[in-house]
Computed example of a mutant assay.
Amino acid sequence: MSTPLRLILEDTDGTQLETSCTRLAVVWQGKEVWIQPVGDQLLIGVDVEEGDTEYANLLLRPQATNLVGLQLEMEPMETETEDGHVHGPDCQH
């Protein structure tokens, strides 16, 4: 059983709504960025859809004492690995 995330959503006028969930997504640059707790860590992943020619890298960079920057970068997918494996719909990768 996973621990729920406590969320605080804030409108532009400063009104806050508190809620909770076990997993949440933010649509950013056309991709779903999923956030969920896994043990004592926070897992952040970007869903890859069939037919995608790029995959996403999430870069977390410190900005200040209590701030970080999160950047989504898209890179071309390689369909063949170094060992000659070609990714296809049945390879489960």
Results as ranks from 00 to 15, higher is better:
V33K: 00
W34K: 00
W34E: 02
I35Q: 00
Q36D: 03
Q36A: 04
P37E: 04
P37G: 01
V38Y: 05
V38W: 02
G39V: 03
G39T: 01
D40Y: 01
D40P: 00
D40A: 04
L42G: 01
L42D: 02
L43H: 00
L43Q: 04
I44T: 08
I44F: 08
I44E: 03
I44V: 15
I44D: 01
G45V: 05
D47V: 07
D47C: 06
D47Y: 06
V48H: 07
V48L: 11
E49T: 06
E49A: 09
E49M: 07
E50L: 12
E50T: 07
G51A: 10
D52Y: 11
D52I: 10
D52M: 14
T53R: 14
T53S: 12
T53G: 09
E54M: 14
E54D: 15
N57C: 08
N57E: 14
L58S: 04
L59T: 10
L59I: 12
R61H: 11
R61D: 13
P62Q: 08
P62I: 01
P62N: 06
P62M: 04
Q63K: 13
A64D: 12
A64E: 09
A64K: 05
T65V: 09
T65Q: 12
T65M: 10
N66G: 02
N66C: 06
L67C: 15
L67P: 03
L67S: 15
V68M: 14
G69P: 01
G69A: 14
G69K: 11
L70I: 08
L70S: 03
Q71C: 10
L72D: 00
L72C: 03
L72G: 00
E73M: 14
E73H: 13
E73N: 13
E73W: 10
M74Q: 10
M74S: 09
E75C: 10
E75P: 00
P76W: 06
P76Y: 05
P76N: 07
P76A: 13
M77T: 11
M77C: 15
E78L: 07
E78G: 04
T79C: 05
T79L: 12
E80S: 04
E80H: 02
T81W: 10
T81S: 15
T81D: 15
T81H: 11
E82F: 11
E82I: 09
E82P: 03
E82C: 08
D83R: 09
D83K: 10
D83G: 05
G84I: 01
G84C: 00
H85N: 11
H85E: 14
V86P: 01
V86E: 09
V86T: 07
V86G: 02
H87M: 12
P89W: 06
D90K: 07
D90G: 04
D90P: 00
C91N: 10
C91S: 11
C91G: 01
Q92T: 01
Q92M: 06
Q92I: 00
H93G: 06
